[in-house]
Design a protein around this nucleic acid. Sequence first.
DNA 1: CCTACCGATCGGTAGG
DNA 2: CCTACCGATCGGTAGG
Lengths: 204, 204
Amino acid sequence: MTAADPAPRRGRGRPGYDQAAVLRTAVELFNRKGYDATSIGDLAKELGVTKPAIYHHVTSKEDLLRLALDDALDELTAVVGGAVEDAGSAGAYERLRGVVRRSVEVLVAHQPAVTLLLRVRGNTPVEVEALERRRWLDDRLAALVRAAVAEGALRNDIPAELVSRLLFGMVNSLAEWYRAEGTYDAAAVADALTQLAFDGLARR
Amino acid sequence: MTAADPAPRRGRGRPGYDQAAVLRTAVELFNRKGYDATSIGDLAKELGVTKPAIYHHVTSKEDLLRLALDDALDELTAVVGGAVEDAGSAGAYERLRGVVRRSVEVLVAHQPAVTLLLRVRGNTPVEVEALERRRWLDDRLAALVRAAVAEGALRNDIPAELVSRLLFGMVNSLAEWYRAEGTYDAAAVADALTQLAFDGLARR
DNA sequence: CCTACCGATCGGTAGG
DNA sequence: CCTACCGATCGGTAGG
């Protein structure tokens, strides 16, 4: 895997990357080697610049992490928050199906950032804040599952919290193998996962 | 979280840990902070000994990782290999259900080691070898899903490889939240997950 | 954006 | 001589 090409040269000066390009390459490296195992020197080499040049675009290594985590969290918050706000417009079951489908689409469209988010350990304040936002999302999803059970649309022989964890565990597992350049597009994966989760694996 | 107590003192000398106790504490730290972010000094502090004392029990930090990964891989290989060898004794569908259930049980019983395994990035030869063994397991599981589809027991409207990834993605997601001291025991989680996966989430 | 560095900490090992 | 360590420091490398 090589770095993205630099932005077009604007007449003179060095090749030149913008912050978005540095961030993209950084997230790719963080996911491939792990955040801690990726040095700023690794990132500089991948981009073909020197180590100090990185600090022209970002103030710290953790800044790169924060930018990526905020990207993933903002997208996921929009999906989950939207389903909560529409509480009156549809049943909980339909809203849950919608959240699952749109979560898959977000995960596919922002796979590198979401993958990074799912690996956060809470070692720094930036990571702790990301974990708190994730926790908020998990709580809203669990509430939506409970509502769908309460309206009689979901099986009630398994605790709703367990259902929620397993369901979104399956969604999140996409981060470990889904690649945009692969066999399946977002819609195909979203369809398959939704059908599998709600209707089950066994032939009927 | 504090370290396990040392082994009982045998009359004289220092507190004394054996390799298994050091390994247990190391894996717990690796999972809490990440492998790279955990120093031998952190491990020593957690155990209440000095850093050089760690090297009385293991030859290197990577040795600790290898011991833990081998533990998880040996257990999972036994489960998956067993289902392959019993190919004549039961249908693929029943063998698949058995593998799912026993995988959950292994994951619950060896949660720290399996969690570590699922986070391996391939940064070192030890990690690459672990990824190769994981790949072998994934291939066997995918073959078992294909066999179950072929015998007509599983739905055939979703590609078998996708079914396999989503199914074991759900199993593996347990590593992220299941804790032995929590609400659910292994059998309850194995039951819930197996029913959810095969029969689906929707009420019928 | 580069060359030239810093304070600190890393995994691992010395003699006792 | 053993097991189980300690205090100090090694050569290198991290982020900045």
